[in-house]
């Protein structure tokens, strides 16, 4: 279980996360949504101890991440497909991670097999496509067979087969009683794999509900999301003709 309580993170005058509270329960897949710059990645980085909150706290099964005895075996983390040295092979990258916790070489081979990277494990990570990098990141997250998984946009760049695989994987992990928190911008995908959805905008909580609750009005998850975040979008593109791209599907 991941508990985020009144979490606030300021960078100078900017409030990236603003009094955010939510819980990701064990045995469920919790989708984490929000427009670009909403504070999703910052929240995840605070949960895993890479950044300090300005106030509030985040715990995993009641403990601060930094206090975990064997973090790799408690929490699997994939934040960024680029958290690999481009000059190191996939195998050696995973092996170095495994060695920090005395995890065996055979487990490294196992996660390489699970993520379908066998044929490229000896290649330097710098030669990987985005999708292969994502698979490597997921392999690293699975290394310690953790009870909690935190995945930042895991399906980003994956081929359809990979997307399907991640969907099955997180469903299986949740069915085993594990906690999965995953962010994504792919609404249709989240509607299929998430039990609950936490939506944030400008660092604040906009919704924390189950997928059926959000789609109760008859629209899709995407409709519900666009409606909820319409006031919180910070970066909005324009159409080629110069007008603001109309948000379709919003019914007010």
């Amino acid at each position: 279980m991941i508990e985020v309580e009144a979490l606030t993170k300021c960078y100078g005058p900017t409030r990236a996360v603003d009094g955010l509270t939510f819980t990701a329960q064990s045995g469920t897949v919790t989708g984490f949504l929000g427009p670009n710059g909403a504070g999703k990645s910052t929240t995840m980085r605070i949960i895993v101890g890479l950044e300090r909150p300005t106030s509030g706290r985040a715990t995993i099964d009641g403990q601060r991440y930094a206090d975990l005895v064997a973090p790799l075996q408690a929490v699997g983390v994939m934040l960024d497909a680029r958290s690999v040295h481009p000059g190191r092979t996939a195998f050696r990258h995973l092996l170095a991670q495994a060695r920090t916790h005395g995890i065996s070489r055979s487990r490294v081979d196992e996660v390489i097999e699970m993520t379908g990277l066998e044929s490229v494990a000896g290649r330097r990570a710098g030669t990987f496509s985005l999708g292969m990098g994502q698979r490597l990141g997921i392999a690293g997250a699975l290394l310690g067979d953790p009870h909690t998984l935190i995945l930042d946009e895991p399906v980003n760049g994956l081929d359809p087969d990979g997307v399907l695989w991640v969907r099955g994987l997180v469903r299986d992990l949740a069915a085993q009683g594990r906690t999965v928190l995953l962010s994504s911008h792919l609404m249709h995908e989240l509607a299929l794999c998430a039990d609950r959805v936490v939506i944030i905008g400008k660092g604040r909580l906009l919704a924390d509900a189950s997928v059926p609750e959000l789609t109760a009005e008859g629209g899709s998850l995407e409709d519900a999301y666009l409606k909820l975040t319409s006031d919180a979008v910070q970066y909005r593109g324009r159409s080629a003709t110069g007008s603001v791209v109309p948000i379709t599907g919003v019914t007010r």
Binding site: V48, L72, Q97
Partner: peptide
């Protein structure tokens, strides 16, 4: 610099948070 110039620090410091 290797950890920080490549983003490896993320996997390193999540494994060794101290």
């Amino acid at each position: 610099t290797g950890e920080f110039s490549t983003g490896t620090y993320q996997s390193t410091f999540t494994a060794v948070p101290r």
